[in-house]
């Protein structure tokens, strides 16, 4: 396979990372917490899609909607039960809880579905496109389109709508936002709902191209999506897109030209270098602590 085809493969993978990273960046930017369970919500979305399509026999579009609804509700419930009591706790406490939630979702999935991976039919029926010797699968065309639409939609939503501005205010200063009459709890709930809905869509597209889902399907992509979000500058929506695509390309080129087994190590190596050289990421803002 030629270099250009590798780049295209990287772009396909990168778009999925970008989509996951959008949800990550949104929750991190507004609720100021690393939602470790984001990857596992992707897994729940993928299972829901598969169950509704295969077991219930609904058309893909209904299945996609179902998984968006299930994940949004799940996101809000998790926030209410696990994260809300910790609003004023230290970051360490919140992070450990988030790891607990991630573990919880994985082990529940393991108990229900077992450790064997389940085959999932693609929800995307579109034909692939080929230009000369280069091939783009239908899923990757859809993913690219969906990611772009969501990125633009999210940017407009946050800049133009009242709710979006409330989110920005909460991310700047929860206390001050509360004093300005913003319902902080409700705003954070909505953030989680949107973030989890994005995770559901990412889950749908991810299994559509990958073909299988298991209890741990979301774990590694989840961490990589976080890497993508950090790479682009956490909290920045275009940054998540850029970080995701870069990460996909790096991974795919490493697999092709260095070593398949070391590709993950290289991806993590990139994260470490970026954090050390430019901790705020490629498009992130620098913040100063107040004494």
């Amino acid at each position: 396979m030629g270099f250009i085809q590798q780049l295209i493969n990287g772009l396909e993978l990168g778009n999925i990372y970008a989509l996951m990273a959008l949800g990550y960046t949104m929750v991190y930017g507004i609720a100021k917490m690393l939602n470790f369970a984001h990857g596992d919500i992707i897994m729940v979305g993928a299972y829901t899609l598969s169950l509704v399509m295969t077991n219930v026999g609904m058309p893909p579009i209904i299945a996609i909607l179902a998984s968006v609804v299930v994940c949004s509700i799940l996101g809000v419930v998790i926030e209410k039960i696990a994260y809300k009591p910790l609003r004023n706790a230290s970051p360490l406490t919140v992070l450990i809880t988030a790891i607990g939630v991630s573990y919880f979702l994985q082990s529940v999935a393991l108990l229900i579905f077992g450790s064997n991976k389940r085959k999932v039919e693609s929800a995307i029926t579109m034909q692939g496109i080929s230009i000369g010797s280069l091939e783009l699968t239908g899923v990757s065309v859809v993913t690219l389109g969906v990611t772009l639409i969501i990125m633009i939609g999210l940017t407009l939503f946050i800049k133009k709508t009242k709710l979006g501005k409330a989110m920005l205010a909460v991310s700047e200063d929860k206390g001050a936002a509360q004093l300005m009459g913003i319902n902080v709890n409700q705003t954070i709930s909505i953030t989680f709902a949107i973030g989890s809905a994005l995770a559901a869509i990412a889950g749908v597209l991810f299994v559509s191209s990958y073909g299988f889902v298991g209890p741990y399907t979301g774990a590694l992509p989840g961490i990589k999506a976080f890497v993508a979000a950090v790479l682009g500058g956490i909290g920045s929506i275009p940054g998540a897109m850029l970080g995701g695509i870069l990460l996909g390309i790096i991974e795919s080129l490493s697999k092709a030209y260095i070593s398949t087994n070391l590709a993950d190590a290289i991806v993590f190596g990139v994260l470490i270098i970026v954090l050390l050289v430019k901790p705020s990421g490629l498009l992130g803002k620098v913040r100063m602590d107040k004494v």
Binding site: P85, V94, G100, F104, L110
Partner: peptide
């Protein structure tokens, strides 16, 4: 033994919430 991971998860979450309350 199947529930080990689940127990770990619940322990983590419950301890954090209790310690904050």
């Amino acid at each position: 033994s199947d529930y080990r991971m689940l127990i770990y998860a619940v322990v983590l979450i419950a301890m954090m919430i209790l310690n904050t309350s």
